[in-house]
């Protein structure tokens, strides 16, 4: 038995090495000075802090961090609240109308955001939503909502109805029942929704690229992108900006891994 195991560990090691390469290369490039022309496989024996300083000042990463944080927090808040409310009647009132509404919402999950780019963009121009916080938040909320409603309604459908019936008998109306009985039980699924939506909004590029055109509203992906396309001569500072941009989510992931993976699995399997 023991003898058979060594190749499993070898395989495991190969997988770890292969998947770690991108982060390894990024760390190396971000730490190197732009004068250093050693191979990207070699980690430097020093850290060129100027790369980070330049990314923070020249690349305006602090502003980008602030913008991304504001957009992410508000989007996640609305996606979670509107999602939880919408899911309750869909999970509990099985009427013909609600079946239609539910399949309508699940259908929206399929629509790729970019396929409506032209008309969505021209709509946002009409209502003056381009390059505003609320404009991008509304778009992100709309396109993240279906997944949130899907997760909440699956979860609520799994809660036994007995408690609600008891509440009704005690004189609660349906709306009070939702607030007093259902809402307190939603904690685990709230964690999943917050994490999934949070990562999605933090990393969004396809909407932000078009709906946030003014530099003062630049988010992290936009800041990294403009860095990479402008400063071809200082790739090391660009790498530092990329590292600064991914660090917050990576750290969160390492500490809250269990919840991240649970959220992913819940959203995928019915």
């Amino acid at each position: 038995m023991k003898k058979k195991n060594w190749w499993l560990y070898l395989l495991g090691l190969v997988i770890i090495v292969v998947h770690f390469i991108p982060i390894y290369i990024l760390l190396g490039v971000a730490a190197k000075s732009s004068m250093d022309i050693t191979s990207k496989w070699i980690l430097p024996g020093y850290v060129e802090w100027n790369n980070f300083k330049e990314a923070l000042n020249g690349g305006n990463m602090l502003l980008a961090l602030k913008n991304t944080a504001i957009i992410t927090v508000f989007s996640v808040f609305f996606v979670t609240v509107i999602g939880a409310f919408s899911a309750y009647p869909l999970a509990r009132n099985r009427s013909r109308l609600n079946t239609v509404v539910k399949s309508f919402i699940l259908g929206i999950m399929m629509i790729p955001g970019l396929s409506v780019l032209v008309p969505l963009y021209s709509t946002m121009v009409k209502i003056h939503g381009i390059s505003t916080y609320w404009g991008i938040i509304v778009v992100l909320v709309t396109f993240n909502l279906p997944m949130s409603i899907f997760l909440f309604s699956n979860f609520i459908a799994g809660i036994p109805v007995a408690l609600e019936e008891a509440a009704f008998i005690d004189g609660c109306n349906p709306i009070q029942t939702f607030f007093k009985i259902i809402l307190p039980q939603l904690k685990p699924v709230v964690a999943s929704v917050v994490i999934l939506t949070g990562v999605g909004c933090w990393n969004d590029y396809q909407f932000s690229l078009y709906f946030l055109q003014s530099p003062q509203y630049r988010t992290i992906p936009l800041a990294v992108a403009s860095y990479f396309s402008q400063t071809a001569n200082n790739m090391n500072a660009a790498a530092a900006s990329a590292l600064l941009g991914v660090l917050p989510v990576l750290l969160l992931f390492i500490f809250l891994q269990k919840y991240f993976i649970k959220g992913m699995v819940d959203s995928a399997i019915k």
């Binding site: 495991g12 997988i15 770890i16 998947h19 770690f20 390469i21 991108p22 982060i23 290369i25 990024l26 490039v29 990207k40 990562v199 933090w202 990393n203 969004d204 590029y205 992290i220 992906p221 990294v224 992108a225 990479f228 790739m235 660009a238 790498a239 990329a242 941009g245 991914v246 989510v249 990576l250 969160l252 992931f253 390492i254 891994q257 991240f260 993976i261 992913m264």
Partner: peptide
């Protein structure tokens, strides 16, 4: 757990930034 962490971590990174990282390769 280590394998799972290393394989899953890139899912957290924006596809755009991953593209730029891969540019170095």
């Amino acid at each position: 757990t280590l394998i799972r962490t290393v394989v899953y971590a890139p899912v957290m990174i924006s596809g755009l930034v991953m593209g730029y990282i891969m540019y170095f390769l």
